[in-house]
Design a protein around this nucleic acid. Structure first.
Length: 418
RNA sequence: GUGAGCGUAGCUCAGCUGGUGGUAGCUCCGGAUUGUGGCUCCGGUGGUCGUGGGUUCGAGUCCCAUCGUUCACCCCA
């Protein structure tokens, strides 16, 4: 038996990779329009970075991380998410002193040891963005709007839900109210019993019908947040209004990571089975300081590449194919030699050129040209070559005309093609 | 970690209550007057029926195990 990839680890092969490139290109373009800079950070970090940021009792840290001891005896972890490494890099490189407000994005693989299912792999890929150094509500609105724009420009349909989780000051009072409510509740599912002990906020996310019915009467976090958080949330909503971004407030929406404060949001869809979130994020004031950095606020989000790719397919959005300028079809040894050299010159001149070296029939070569979506075919045949000519065929309208085969025919072809 | 479903050509799959693996579709290669594509037609390449046991005269089909995979729970992007 040959060696296979690990469970939950996938190859992205030609035919699929074009979709990924399209998503990435679209997103990068938008990031730059919003003045974000890319930051590349390592995939491997010290384990305590994630324990300190994500939260000791979260499922991610407790049972999903790829953690191992390296040859020096240090505990290392394959990053399960992107925010912690970026914040670590921000602190370590003193980026706060280079720019008061840093707007960063990163794209790459994340690792979580979960049971794979639709839209969930053990190695998955995220595009994540972070804005550090400001807690202005308009920035929240702008960040949410940027996530929204990515979805729009990919031609996708999704809905946006937002919520406020309050801050260090007001969250405890809500927690108290929620716990006393849960105390009265009856017949909660086993999962909720467990959640009450670990992270009571998350019971609100329960899928069990019985639990949900009862939670309708649960206290709303939005009734418990402090004046500062309430003002902030109002301004965020106003900002989204000014930008024309449609949203729904969902006071039951919570986040799985411990560090979130105030604004949180999710882009959700019903088209991906159980994994409904294609992107999500929120504010995390205090996290940078918690990681040993300056006391700066931050907000960010992550979008799942696999889920975006699945959704493009599900919602039947077309992905533009990479363009090929010329297919060089040569017939016979002399023409093959000529074509071989010409192909290289055209490539050096900047064109995308395909040539088949197997000396197949013209019919076959034209077929290949059509399949490759080539704009032109340059046919080098014995007959024309004898007269010092070649045929340049427009593959789209099937018009073709003679061109002279000369030393500088690259220039002539460039004129025709560009 | 829990549960259910599925493993038959490179891909998508038929195969009924066990009786010799399919002119199956797609892809790939070749051909349809000797040099012109995406359509059509014809032909060809391609399979230890995931693996190991068991039941049986006989197993792709039934049973057990094992591995893989999918979906859901959980968790989350």
């Amino acid at each position: 038996m040959s060696v296979k990839a690990l469970k939950g680890f996938k190859d992205i092969v030609p035919g699929e990779v074009e979709t990924w490139q399209y998503i990435e290109k679209t997103a990068r373009d938008i990031f730059h329009r919003f003045d974000f800079s890319e930051i590349k950070v390592p995939i491997l970090e010290k384990t305590k970075l994630f324990v300190r940021s994500i939260g000791e009792t979260t499922d991610i840290v407790e049972k999903e991380m790829y953690t191992f001891t390296d040859r020096n005896g240090s505990s290392l972890t394959m990053r399960p998410e992107g925010t912690a490494p970026v914040l670590r890099a921000y602190i370590e490189n003193g980026l706060q002193s280079k720019k008061a407000v840093q707007k960063l994005y990163t794209i790459g693989p994340m690792f979580r040891h979960e049971r794979p299912q639709k839209g969930r792999l053990r190695q998955f890929h995220q595009m994540s963005v972070e804005v550090l150094g400001t807690d202005l509500p308009r920035v929240d609105a702008e960040v949410v709007a940027m996530a929204w724009l990515i979805v729009k420009e990919l031609g996708l349909t999704a809905s946006l839900e937002i919520n406020s989780l309050g801050c260090k000051k007001c969250r405890p009072s809500f927690n108290k109210a929620l716990l006393s409510f849960l105390d009265q509740a009856e017949n909660l599912c086993d999962d909720c019993q467990r959640r009450i002990k670990i992270n009571p906020l998350r019971v609100l996310d329960c899928k069990s019908a019985n639990c949900r019915e009862q939670y309708v009467k649960a206290p709303s976090i939005l009734d418990h947040i402090c004046v500062g958080c309430d003002e902030h949330f109002k301004s965020v909503k106003e900002g989204l209004g000014l930008l024309g971004v449609p949203y729904k407030v969902n006071s039951f929406m919570v986040r799985g990571l411990d560090y979130y404060t105030r604004t949180t949001f999710e882009l959700i869809t019903g088209d991906l089975g159980a994994q409904s979130a294609i992107g999500a994020g929120g504010r995390y004031d205090g996290l940078v300081q918690q990681l040993g950095g300056p006391d700066v606020p931050g907000i960010g989000f992550a979008m799942g590449m696999e889920r975006l790719a699945l959704l493009l397919e599900q919602q039947e959005q077309s992905v533009p194919l990479p363009a090929v300028d010329i297919f060089v079809a040569a017939l016979g040894e002399t023409a093959q030699k000529k074509g071989f050299a010409l192909t290289h010159r055209l490539r050096q001149a900047g064109l995308t050129v395909i040539m088949d070296h197997q000396d197949r029939s013209l019919k076959n070569q034209m077929k290949q040209a059509g399949r490759a979506n080539a704009r032109y075919a340059l046919i080098l045949g014995e007959e024309e070559l004898a007269k010092g000519r070649a045929v340049l065929r427009n593959m789209e309208n099937r018009e073709q005309h003679d061109v002279a085969v000369t030393e500088d025919m690259t220039g002539i072809i460039m004129q025709n093609v560009k």
